[in-house]
Design a protein around this nucleic acid. Sequence first.
DNA 1: CCAAAAGTGTTGTTGTTACACCCATGC
DNA 2: GCATGGGTGTAACAACAACACTTTTGG
Lengths: 227, 227
Amino acid sequence: MQKIYVAVDAVVFGYDRQYQQIGILLIKRKIEPFINQWALPGGLVKDEETLEEAVSRELEEETGISINYLEQLYTFGKVKRDPRNRVVSVAYFGLVRPDIFTLHASTDAAAAEWFEINKLPPLAFDHQEIVDTALERLRTKVRYEPIGFELLEPKFPFSDLEKLYTTLLQQDIDRRNFKKKLMSLGVIEELNETYTSGLGRPAKLYRFNTKQYFELKSLGGSFNINT
Amino acid sequence: MQKIYVAVDAVVFGYDRQYQQIGILLIKRKIEPFINQWALPGGLVKDEETLEEAVSRELEEETGISINYLEQLYTFGKVKRDPRNRVVSVAYFGLVRPDIFTLHASTDAAAAEWFEINKLPPLAFDHQEIVDTALERLRTKVRYEPIGFELLEPKFPFSDLEKLYTTLLQQDIDRRNFKKKLMSLGVIEELNETYTSGLGRPAKLYRFNTKQYFELKSLGGSFNINT
DNA sequence: CCAAAAGTGTTGTTGTTACACCCATGC
DNA sequence: GCATGGGTGTAACAACAACACTTTTGG
């Protein structure tokens, strides 16, 4: 009889458009081991729920957040990840929109908070490794799939998109070329609305068009941002 | 107490340069459920071995093969994958060189055989889904990482590489452009040897240079084959 | 000398980069 | 009227796609 537990953990990213920071959602553990340390939201999978259901449930229970994009990241299976028993953890990767940033800690966790990715506290278990893997995935994936939009509000000024990419990829972007490139894909529509941040010229709002994106994909085209 | 088992399964690809076919390694099950049906090599993980060790062990036991490239593919966790108990399976993706094609079935499996990917028999469990996922990964990955070489012998005529890509991507390739592109990356070296297939002009042999590839990567360059 | 496979360059087209000034708003 | 952020075009350069004939070998 095997003595291995199956858990899920979630690395949930959020983007703060005001301060241009990428955040990760962490919880403070209420129980041993690693009591009072920060950790990724997650926990054991129940016998009758799928892995995805387990992730959603844990996120709901521990942080009250509901997620916007979720995909499987990697499965961490070293023998001594957990000091008590062997636990194989299937890690997931999630994105949320800024408007859902609100948190409320509950049952299993003492607290849930956003942390900026370069200022993470020491994490429980091998969670730092999981976070690193997730960040790498985010940075790679944002270049060839339109997942960046899941971090922005549905209608956004172009400069938000630009700043998001600058922050994520940690390099400057030429505003004109970036816009030309994206608009040429034909998956972003310009709306007849503007947005005034309070200062400067009001910005037009844009929206990502999922339908047009699937059309593009089915025609063999692809979303692709290089520089 | 959780009642979930943890297993690994492997989708191992091989390339037959003579017939230009991609093959997958399957075993015939000796035990229930799905007795006598074809399935992916794999099995339950032991308490004290890592997931990778489990894959290597199962491959060794069931097929006698030793693998050349191995990476984690995806974790399949639906509730009813296995009719007996709940089993979460961490699937791996492997590549072997043609010279190691030799098989010998043993302990756990009645037989191990190569099957051409478009002529697979009905598979046990959800293994067809795993194979589909693996194939998609192979086709995607071969475009932006030099894993194709793991399917060829260490020294190969350029036409082998070309045919491999034609087969994998199911589209014709312009011989001149393809070679120009690859050579321009500086990761393939031309050897002073030739190879005579028996017919036609002898071909120069080439070798993939791993060291130069890592150099390229560290300089921010990347392997990339589009069309 | 014929069949089979390997080898090789040029040109047009397309995509990418670099670059700087004017515009609309709030105070 | 000034500070702030938004909006826009062109030219040089690099990458990619299309394309067909010659060479070397074995039989």
